[in-house]
Simulated scan of single mutants.
Amino acid sequence: MKLTQGTFSFLPPLTDEEISSQINYALDQGWACSVEYTDDPHPRNTYWEMWGLPMFDLHDAAGVMMEVNACRKTYPQQYIKVNAFDSVRGFETMRLSFIVNQPSDEKGFRLERQDVHGRVQRYSIRTYATDKPAGDRY
């Protein structure tokens, strides 16, 4: 199963050249890039770990790619994404977010059903990755 979150998620994995092109596009728009990683890819987990600080002063994709590759080297079996923020109007808004690294074996998700009062049923999604503690998931 391939995780489908963010822009380009239904496409084949992007090459480093394609990632650089997207980063250049974001930088040309005046957006600041940041790199994040996680081992819990649940769709509601919007707060991934930040790799370094947001790169507000970079104007070349090579600097962002250096951080992406450093994160890949440290966390090769985790999800890594690049975010692009627009702070031009005085408030930060994420304009672009896409995954640049995934584990070689993605665990997937299970649907859990809970029967409550009467005939009401509630469903939730849980990733198989969280069966293990953080740091041991991939």
Rank of each mutant, 00 (worst) to 15 (best):
92 E>G: 13
71 C>Y: 01
102 Q>E: 14
33 C>E: 03
106 E>N: 13
54 P>T: 06
101 N>I: 04
53 L>F: 03
105 D>N: 07
107 K>T: 05
102 Q>G: 01
54 P>K: 08
37 Y>V: 13
45 N>K: 06
91 F>Q: 11
100 V>Y: 00
33 C>S: 03
46 T>I: 08
117 H>S: 14
44 R>Q: 11
39 D>S: 12
80 I>Q: 12
79 Y>T: 03
51 W>C: 08
106 E>I: 10
39 D>R: 14
37 Y>L: 14
103 P>D: 06
85 F>R: 01
70 A>S: 15
70 A>D: 10
41 P>E: 06
61 A>C: 09
97 S>I: 00
63 G>P: 02
70 A>C: 07
99 I>Y: 06
78 Q>S: 08
98 F>Y: 08
48 W>V: 03
68 V>H: 05
38 T>P: 04
72 R>N: 10
107 K>M: 15
66 M>G: 04
85 F>D: 06
36 E>Y: 10
85 F>T: 09
61 A>W: 00
88 V>T: 04
90 G>A: 03
34 S>V: 04
115 D>C: 03
99 I>C: 14
62 A>L: 01
91 F>L: 05
61 A>V: 01
104 S>M: 05
57 D>I: 11
57 D>M: 14
76 P>M: 10
92 E>T: 14
89 R>Y: 12
47 Y>S: 13
111 L>I: 12
83 N>V: 06
83 N>C: 15
77 Q>T: 10
56 F>A: 05
114 Q>W: 12
84 A>G: 11
74 T>A: 15
70 A>V: 00
92 E>K: 13
85 F>A: 10
118 G>L: 04
87 S>L: 11
44 R>M: 11
56 F>K: 13
115 D>Y: 02
67 E>A: 15
101 N>A: 12
71 C>M: 06
47 Y>G: 07
88 V>S: 15
37 Y>C: 14
100 V>D: 04
36 E>I: 00
113 R>D: 00
88 V>D: 06
34 S>C: 06
49 E>N: 12
90 G>V: 09
68 V>K: 03
111 L>V: 13
35 V>I: 15
49 E>L: 02
116 V>I: 15
44 R>G: 08
57 D>T: 15
97 S>R: 14
82 V>T: 03
42 H>P: 00
97 S>F: 00
32 A>L: 08
46 T>E: 15
